[in-house]
Design a protein around this nucleic acid. Structure first.
Lengths: 342, 342
DNA sequence: TACATTTCTGGAACCGATTGCAGACGAGGA
DNA sequence: TCCTCGTCTGCAATCGGTTCCAGAAATGTA
């Protein structure tokens, strides 16, 4: 492994000049720059990022804390974040923050503290106030996806508005007997999501003068089996069956559709279903959905932290930014069957 | 940010002693150790991993190169790898190696080279010989999941045996008209997987004296929509419909089942379906499958590289290790209907 | 008691870069 | 012609630890 000294010798210049030539800052004549560059490539020289970090104080690493990896929404965020970081020359350090209390505190107390990352992106964390303030206390640029999170600039769709939009779509089609299948508060997600989507649902009902009661809402796991279970439960009893279901996520919606199919309930003739996400499987199931783009949200979060890193003194203008979400019509929603039950 | 010097001053000892006390190597009396520890915690001191890496040459980082993130198999591997790494005090640097040629070369030529990782885990990469040798040339411990990969110790299920097992299960049930839905060679995966599973399928047919011809095999995308499309195509024509389908992955199998349901073909009465993976959705679809455990494979890969890192001179005994995969029976397979077509 | 070991500690060199400073040089302006 | 300013380069200090070495203290052994 050749060091900067070897390159300097070979190019017949000093270490300082090599450093300036390769990093591109400071004055170097183009002729020596070329000498240095060819010497470096002949030796296969690459800078030691450790040595360089030591003096500059910059690691070129960004830490990403995420509660789940193996789920479409989260996986897409990681993909988006990774691409954006690599594009900008940063490395991505991944921390999967599960519910495991030991692992959690280890991440906060050991890993994040060790001056190894320049910035942090926190993805829809259900995070304790202690944990949030220990993040802020690092004094590093932070961005969150989800939230809002105390003291941290965050980014997400407007969950209330998205849920309202979905529900309004059903109402506009003429549905009056609508149920919401939402998230389980014990899930490994920023619980704001669940309560806000429920809120948007309720808002839309209220605005249309439709009643909301204990039977209008079922909580389940935020995945296909969760939606399936909820669907079986809801649709099993023909007398209290709604004509439309707003599922808080497409995976849940797909589960509901599978349950409906199994019960011989036709979608959308007997039951309209709408979700949120525009999941890749939505097409296959003809699922009408409110589209959001997690990969892009990941990129935006990267922008947020990188800009803080690279333009001194810049801080994000808003503590919470909402990104657009719009309706994607497919075949799982339609007007209720004429003379439908109740 | 207080440095080691401040701790030394406060504890009334030298930098050297602080370093020994906190790192636990070398002799330190327990009394001074305590002095140092309390001084350190009072100051909120944490070592600079850069400075420490600079002299030790160890970064405590492991790079993970993976072609896809947002897919069950890959996501599970990442989860397993992450957990195992954090447990052992290492950080995970994630590189998503897509087909994008620019991004690829950037990862190989820029990121991996910069002395930032102690070891590398390469996950089912479709990797060029050049890329493989540039990995080996880094001279760092490497482990692969998938493979075999030239010169790199790898780890996977025995794909041929798993495919044979699946096919034999169908044959044992009495099926003689079996098709295989496998992976598309253009997919972003180690193509070995596809050809080996096809191989195992052919082996099992041959061993049972069953014919294999061009109509026995369909290639498609390795996901649910891919399986659905293949299913529609295969099952659409009643006259050449098989009584059983072996799908090379559970996601594909689920797609096939969805297609069958849509065509009114009963699983397993009219069609048996088996997959590989034991995907979390297998339960929901009653899918019989050959189970493998990607999270555990991730952990094993971590073991492989960490052991190389921490026990000098140790190298993995086998260039390729196979991990077990066993049949999980559910309701998607059964004997063919008596007097079934052809 | 004398000597050999083991434990403990500090000084100083070192890891491999970056950067402030100062000196040298050439070009343009007065 | 003399000055100033911008360009170019090298020296040396610095980032924040780790570790070799040597000497002192404590412990064990003959």
């Amino acid at each position: 492994m050749s060091g900067i000294e070897d390159v300097a010798l070979r190019a017949g210049v000093s270490k300082a000049t090599v450093s300036r030539a390769l990093s591109g800052r400071g004055y170097v004549s183009s002729i020596t720059r070329h000498k240095v560059e060819s010497a470096a490539s002949e030796l296969g020289y690459v800078v030691s990022s450790n040595a360089s970090s030591l003096v500059t104080g910059r690691t070129n690493n960004v830490g990403v804390i995420i509660p789940v990896i193996n789920q479409w929404f989260f996986g897409s965020i990681i993909e988006g974040v990774e691409r954006a970081l690599i594009d900008r020359g940063y490395d991505l350090m991944l921390y999967n923050l599960t519910k495991d209390i030991d692992a959690r505190s280890r991440v906060f107390e050991y890993f994040l503290v060790r001056k190894r990352v320049d910035a942090i992106i926190a993805v829809t964390l259900e995070i304790s106030p202690d944990e949030a303030s220990s993040l802020v206390a690092l004094g590093k640029p932070i961005a969150g996806i989800g939230g809002p999170l105390a003291g941290i600039p965050t980014l997400s769709i407007d969950d209330i508005a998205a849920a309202r939009l979905a529900t309004e779509h059903l109402i506009a089609l003429g549905h009056t007997n609508i149920m919401h299948v939402g998230g389980d508060a014990a899930e490994l997600m920023d619980f704001n999501v669940h309560s806000k989507r429920l809120q948007g649902f309720m808002d839309a009902l209220a605005a249309a003068g439709l009643p909301f009661n204990g039977e209008s809402y079922v909580a389940t796991h935020f995945d296909i089996p969760g939606g399936y279970a909820a669907g079986k439960q809801i649709l099993g009893d023909p007398r209290r069956r709604p004509t439309a279901i707003f599922a808080a996520a497409d995976e849940v919606a797909i589960g509901v559709i599978l349950a409906a199919r199994e019960l011989g309930i036709s979608v959308p003739d007997d039951l309209s279903v709408i979700g949120i996400d525009n999941h890749p499987l939505a097409d296959l199931f003809g699922l009408t959905s409110i589209a959001q783009n997690p990969a892009k949200q990941g990129e935006q979060a990267v922008d947020l932290v990188i800009r803080q890193l690279e333009t001194a003194g810049w801080t994000p203008p808003n503590i919470h930014t909402t990104v657009p979400a719009q309706l994607v019509m497919r075949s799982s929603t339609s007007a209720p069957r004429a003379g439908s039950p109740r």
